[in-house]
Amino acid sequence: MVNYIYDSSFEGLLTAIYESYYSDKPPEHILPDRYVQQQLLCENIQIVTCEQKADKVYHAILKKISSYALRHTYYAFLSEKQDISTTLYHYLRLGFKVGKDIDRYLIDENVRCVHDISRKVGFERHRMLGLLRFRQVGTDNYYASFEPDYNITALIAPHFTKRLSDQNWIIHDMKRNIGAIYKKDTKAWIISDMMAYQPIHDISHEKMFQEMWKTYFNSIAIEAKQNAKLQRQFMPQRYWKHLIEKQ
C-alpha cells in the first residue's frame, strides 16, 4: 500500500494527482501532511509541490472535464476533511475518463461525496456573507472575527472587496489563525498569517452602534411567533460567539 503525502496546499494536491498518473505505484490514499500517521504495511511517499505540474492538472480539469468540476474540487478541498483528498483523487480519475458528464454520475459514491461537501462549503460561504460582523477599530478601519467550519476566508473576501471597498478591513479566521487583509488605497486583499496579530480596541462610539443593532434585533421579532428552534436551525449556535446580537 502506498500513501501520497502532500503539503496541505491545493497545489500540493494537484501535484499528487499529477504524480499518480506517472507513477508505477498508484496511491491508496492521498493525505495532507497534517493528518499523516505512520501505519504498518504502508509506504508514505512525500510529494514535492510543483507549480508547473499543479498548473497542468488545473488546466486539464478545466479543459477535459469542466469548470464546474474544478469548482467542486476546490470547494471540497477547502472543507479540510480528512479523507477528502483521496475522494477527490477518485473523482478526478473518473472525470478524466468520462469528461464533462462527471457531474451526472450522482449514483457514484465519490461524485456524491464531492458534491455534498462542496455544497456544504458553498453554503457556509453564503451564510457567512450575512453572518460576518465588523467592528470599527479606527476612522476607516474595520475588523471581523469568525470561526467557520471550513476554510472559506478566501472565498468570502472578494465579496467584501466589492461591497466595502472604501474602508480598510480585516477578516480574521480565529480557528486557523489566518486573515484576509484589505487596503482601500490599493483596492486589493491578501491572505496573511495572523499568529502575531495584536487586537486593536474599538473606537469610542462602536458600542453605541452595537446597542442600536441589538435594539433593532429585539424589536423586529413578533412575540406571538417566538420560535427559537427555527432560529437555531438557520443560525446555528456555534456561530453566536461572534454575533453581536447574540451576546
Binding site: G130, K162, D166, Q167, A221, K225, L230, F234, M235
Partner: peptide, 29 residues
C-alpha cells in the same frame, strides 16, 4: 454594482444577515 467612490452593492440572490427570535430572517433594516 458599487461605484468607484461609493459603498455597497446588491447581491442578485439576496443575503440574510440574521434570524430574529421568531425565526424570521433579517436582511434589511
Amino acid at each position: 454594482a458599487n461605484t468607484p467612490d461609493g459603498i455597497g452593492n446588491a447581491h442578485l440572490a439576496g443575503i440574510c444577515h440574521s434570524w430574529a427570535d421568531d425565526g424570521r430572517c433579517i436582511s434589511l433594516l
